Simulated scan of single mutants.
Amino acid sequence: MKLNKTLSLAVVAAAIMATSCGGSGTKTETTSSTPAPAAPAQQEVSPEERHKDNPDFAAGLALVKQSDCPSCHMVDRKIVGPAYNDVSEKYELTDENVELLASHVINGNVGVWGEIPMPAHPTLSKEDAELMVKYVLLLKK
């Protein structure tokens, strides 16, 4: 009888251990957590997209395109004069800078970007020159 009690206790203990440790005889699935996919790199928005609702940007761009500006300037690269992006990095968009740079466009200038002079554009109105300058300064990243 003592052997039966001991054997019964051993069986009960084994059953308790098996169920408490997950060994119920059925397979349990383990799930490994996979890292969330990395957020897609934020694409740089073009200045045209960034300023699509800005009438000064659109008007200035149109004026620049129909002028002789592209023969000496590009947005991203220096040709004869500085790249527009370089100008926008150097000057903040303030009324004073717009007025100063518009006067450089109308009257010509030399010495700020080197010794090659920027020719004068005396037939250009002050308002148009200011719109063109605003377009350039709005290119700032």
Rank of each mutant, 00 (worst) to 15 (best):
M1P: 14
K2D: 04
K2N: 08
L3V: 15
L3Q: 07
T6D: 06
L9D: 10
V11F: 11
V12L: 15
V12R: 05
A15S: 12
I16L: 14
I16F: 10
A18T: 09
T19G: 15
S20E: 10
C21V: 03
G22V: 02
G23N: 10
S24C: 04
S24W: 00
G25T: 09
G25Q: 09
K27L: 09
K27C: 01
T28P: 02
T28Q: 15
T31I: 14
T31H: 14
S33N: 08
P37W: 00
P37E: 12
P37S: 08
A39N: 13
A39T: 14
E44H: 03
S46M: 04
S46K: 06
S46A: 08
P47E: 07
E49K: 07
R50S: 07
R50K: 11
R50W: 01
R50G: 11
H51M: 09
D53F: 05
N54E: 06
F57M: 04
A59F: 03
A59S: 12
L61D: 04
A62R: 04
L63M: 08
S67A: 07
P70Q: 10
S71L: 10
C72W: 06
C72L: 02
H73P: 07
M74E: 14
V75Q: 15
D76R: 14
V80L: 09
G81D: 11
A83Y: 09
Y84M: 02
V87S: 02
Y91S: 06
Y91I: 05
E92N: 09
L93T: 01
D95H: 03
D95M: 02
L100G: 00
L101N: 07
I106V: 14
I106P: 02
N107M: 01
N109C: 07
G111V: 09
G114E: 02
E115P: 13
I116N: 10
P119I: 11
P122K: 00
T123A: 11
T123Y: 04
K126Y: 01
E130C: 05
L131K: 15
V133D: 06
K134W: 01
V136T: 10
L137A: 01
L139F: 13
K140L: 00
K140G: 03
K141R: 05
K141H: 08
K141Q: 05
